[in-house]
Amino acid sequence: MATKTIRAEYLKGLWDENPVLRQILGLCPTLAVTGTVITGLAMGLATTFVLIFSSLVVSSIKKLIPAQVRIATYIVVIASFVTIADQFLKAFFYPISEALGPYVPLIVVNCIILGRQEAFSSRNSVGRSLIDALGMSTGFILTLLALSSIREILGAGTFLGHQVMGPWFKPWIIMILPAGAFITLGILLGIALQIESRTKRN
């Protein structure tokens, strides 16, 4: 791990260790908020904020945390930043906060964030943890964007609220329903695995 270049450290979050598609982490928010692109994007950014700052804090105090209570410590750190993000959204972006509902506070139990603290920030330097957090967040946002774009375009015929499909288009109601989220993500996972095994073979 220590020999990885900064570039590789960042890029691994995009594909090789993409939190959603490859590690199958953080599925709950991924499925729940991707009905429209705007909520997906907001969720991605909020998670990014929490992940980056939690990684910074955890990696800088890692020597002070006793091993037995490390998980509890991470959770308190994460919960503090989630509270900040939640209050911030409520104050400045009330409609988005309303649309995301309980899923903003639920960032606290997003396995991606806790997973990165345990697997990475607790053993690496502050700088490296920052790069890792940035890479993971980018991967997460890209996945959310892909999923929410598919669901919004097929489910409502719009993209970021703008009409993109012609008048002939009948929205696929199923894409907005929970069922659409599950099925689309399942197919995306399949495609990701297929691409991966193709590139491995070559």
Binding site: F182, I183, G186, I187, L189, G190, L193, Q194
Partner: peptide, 14 residues
């Protein structure tokens, strides 16, 4: 093959 595991599970869940 690519759908084995989580992929097919998600589709079933859908």
């Amino acid at each position: 093959e690519p759908l084995k595991g989580a992929g097919i599970a998600l589709i079933v869940a859908g």
